[in-house]
């Protein structure tokens, strides 16, 4: 009953011309982020896959990675999802709990074309499918000239006009790691980051930007926020450049999404085919051109314009700090505590 309902929804979700073909190539369900990720991923990756293979793909809006993990846990006995795209640390949990399958190039040959960092990120489970990275976003009307360094946020004239995400949010962890690296030479060196964060704390308006930093900038509430590059680039375009995006001179860290095969998938063949497609140079290029997520397949050919807006551009490449998110998970609790005691406590307003 539930399966047929899903199938019906899946057919409805697809464009009419695909329906006939879709019935030939079977069906599968993909769980990934909602909103603009869904819109762009559907157009550049999912739709061409369905057109080529005749496989109907139902896109299940997963919310945050944690929520997606929750869905996988709840459906452990009877999975309704075949492929999941989620943040690397959450994917590692899913992998450890056996919610997603261990996979390598023998099952999915395209994995061989994924860069080493991308393969390692997924551990024994699915490889990286997108690279995103932490950027500083700012109000280009209020902040001139365009800042190149995180240091711009420490300027006294921007006091009270800064939105940061505090740990355990991963943007907060990423910012802390960048400051640790810049001031202490190692992203794990929390002690090197703390003084800078304590200095910045009183300038911070909110540690829980709502709904997000981009909106707060557009509403004139703040001038600086942290963000993930892909979304920031899109919002920058949508706001005709009002939102400025900077890859800080201090460096940046990747946010990695991996693509995973759900354990006991009922549509394993279709799921593997989709993963192969998602990791293919064509699909990777199309998504990068559209949304500026860095490709993970080393054979991907991307226009210079698009590549320049990812962290994979030659001029940015060396700024990417080799942060291991799975190691970060173990540090997270102590970072979280020190933030609360030293940074947030120092930020009382």
């Amino acid at each position: 009953m539930r399966r047929t309902l899903f199938a019906a929804c899946a057919s409805l979700a697809l464009a009419a011309p695909d329906i006939a073909a879709a019935q030939d190539g079977g069906r599968m369900t993909l769980q990934a982020y909602a909103g603009i990720f869904r819109d762009n991923y559907t157009e550049t990756v999912v739709a061409p896959f369905t057109a080529a293979r005749g496989t109907a793909v139902q896109y299940h809006d997963g919310g945050t990675s944690a929520a997606m993990l929750g869905t996988l846990r709840a459906q452990r006995a009877d999975p309704q999802i075949d492929v999941v795209i989620m943040d690397v640390t959450t994917a590692a949990i899913a992998c450890a709990e056996g919610l997603v399958e261990k996979i390598d190039a023998t099952t999915l040959p395209v994995i061989a074309d994924v860069g080493e960092q991308g393969r390692q990120a997924g551990g024994e489970c699915g490889p990286a499918v997108t690279y995103d990275h932490l950027v500083m976003v700012y109000d280009s009307r209020a902040v001139t000239p365009a800042p190149t360094s995180l240091a711009a946020m420490w300027a006294p004239e921007h006091r009270g006009r800064i939105a940061l995400s505090a740990p355990p949010n991963i943007q907060g962890l990423a910012l802390t790691a960048i400051l640790a690296h810049a001031n202490g030479g190692n992203w794990r060196n929390l002690n090197a980051a703390m003084p800078r964060l304590r200095e910045l704390a009183p300038s911070v308006q909110t540690f829980t930007p709502n709904p997000d930093g981009y909106t707060l900038i557009l509403n004139d509430q703040v001038r600086f926020a942290t963000g993930w590059n892909a979304r920031a680039q899109l919002y920058s375009d949508q706001s005709q450049g009002r939102i400025g995006v900077t890859l800080p001179s201090e460096g940046t860290v990747f946010q990695i999404n991996t693509i995973n095969l759900v354990a006991n998938s009922k549509n394993r063949a279709q799921a593997l085919a989709f993963m192969a497609h998602a990791l293919s140079p064509e699909a990777q290029a199309a998504f990068t051109e559209r949304m500026f997520y860095g490709p993970t397949n080393t054979r991907t050919q991307v226009s210079a314009a698009a590549l320049g807006r990812t962290a994979l551009a030659p001029e940015f490449r060396e700024r990417v700090i080799p942060l291991d998110w799975n190691e970060m998970v173990r540090l997270r609790d102590s970072w979280n505590q020190r933030w609360r005691r030293e940074v947030i406590a120092a930020s009382s307003r």
């Binding site: 995400s165 505090a166 911070v204 308006q205 909110t206 540690f207 829980t208 709502n210 609360r340 947030i344 930020s347 009382s348 307003r349």
Partner: peptide, 10 residues
């Protein structure tokens, strides 16, 4: 607390 506390209220 979440949306009006600015991350300062636990």
């Amino acid at each position: 607390p979440r949306l009006m506390g600015g991350g300062r209220v636990f």
